[in-house]
Design a protein around this nucleic acid. Sequence first.
DNA 1: CATACTTGATAGCTTTACTATCTTTTTAGA
DNA 2: TCTAAAAAGATAGTAAAGCTATCAAGTATG
Lengths: 224, 224
Amino acid sequence: MEIALQIKMNEKLFLRNPELSALGKKIIQHSIQLIHKNGFESFTFKKLAADIGTTEASIYRYFENKHRLLIYIAAWYWSWLEYRVSVNTMNIKDPAVRLKRVIKLLTAVVEDDIKTTYFNEDILHQIIIAEGTKAYLTKHVTEDNKDQLFKPYKDLCAKIGEIILDYNPKYKYPKSLASTLIEVAHFQNFFMHNLPSLTDFGKDKDESKIVAFLEDLVFSSIKN
Amino acid sequence: MEIALQIKMNEKLFLRNPELSALGKKIIQHSIQLIHKNGFESFTFKKLAADIGTTEASIYRYFENKHRLLIYIAAWYWSWLEYRVSVNTMNIKDPAVRLKRVIKLLTAVVEDDIKTTYFNEDILHQIIIAEGTKAYLTKHVTEDNKDQLFKPYKDLCAKIGEIILDYNPKYKYPKSLASTLIEVAHFQNFFMHNLPSLTDFGKDKDESKIVAFLEDLVFSSIKN
DNA sequence: CATACTTGATAGCTTTACTATCTTTTTAGA
DNA sequence: TCTAAAAAGATAGTAAAGCTATCAAGTATG
């Protein structure tokens, strides 16, 4: 049995759906590799075209520009994370256990037994850590938001907020704590690897330390 | 009596010290305005030159490129914040009170009685919220870090970490909590204004709500 | 087998991101 | 106050980025 994870993406994220053609999939696959290798700033459609063996014009048929492609990749990532949160918290009654699962999922990409995608999810996780915020830290965030481009991120956040409320219905900041959790998981990871003196995990570079910090942070806050 | 705040900046941040000439000051002043108005992505030295009434070449004599200029502005901001933290926590014994002062300083620019700079600090605060992380979210963060470009950020973080330890010497994550506090203060502000459903303050857009959230977050964590 | 759609190939245009050089103006100090 | 050196202005030029347009070739589908 072959399982392919198909995530339904907002039509506004692309000009032509990259999931529906070989070239489209190559664009996503090679984008992730190139952005990971050289960073988003030095990433261009010309370089991407050369890497794939196609032309710049062909890529512009799929995405308006490289920023839209980044939003697409980020949206895919958030949808995928929400899916994994759903799967991993299913049938678990205890909200504390569910929250701990969420924290683990946010912090590191755990090896899945089923290979669901045509690209490396761990690399995807890494580029979201380093480049993900650039998707919305722009002057056109409001228009992009109106086009629902950040819906997967907001859905994930809402879902985590629900779990927080399940644990403690009286907690006053479920949504802010959820978005904080997501961002801090990424930032602490980036700092640990790149600006270690901003963290307490510089020496060992161990992701489980971030998990411990986040668990401490979240559970102290929501304990009444 | 005239008080001018002179912050000693790392020599590697610029080619020619912008604080030491009228043109240099104009570069900083107009950069802040332009980045605030149009965002860092659409900001160019050509536009900046036109805005000032000088030439592109003249600006390149002060800064290698626009990214270095952003790092300069960010470094100035962090130094300024650290200075304000020092002043505002001076002579206060109670670490709880000191921490609360820090949280307020991180969250909003309080009107100062003394005008110390030639640009609007509130606008500076806003551009750091929206663009500040782009200073270090790059592929060359490690080299930039070796050149000490992020020292003001790290110093501020260390100082806040110290205050956290003063409050509770047994707390295990002072540095991570400090960097979290700084970043979350900014992100929650950005979300509140631009992606309000990611926060619990969307309706009123009131900075004091962020302060309350951060106080709750920090003090629950560090209470033993 | 026809035709609609996708991709490739090529060209071109504006803007960005610089570097170089020469002249004029400003400034600092002897 | 004169002088020289430093800063700023003026101008030009180049490579790459960020697109858009057009037409031909290949491929899928009914």
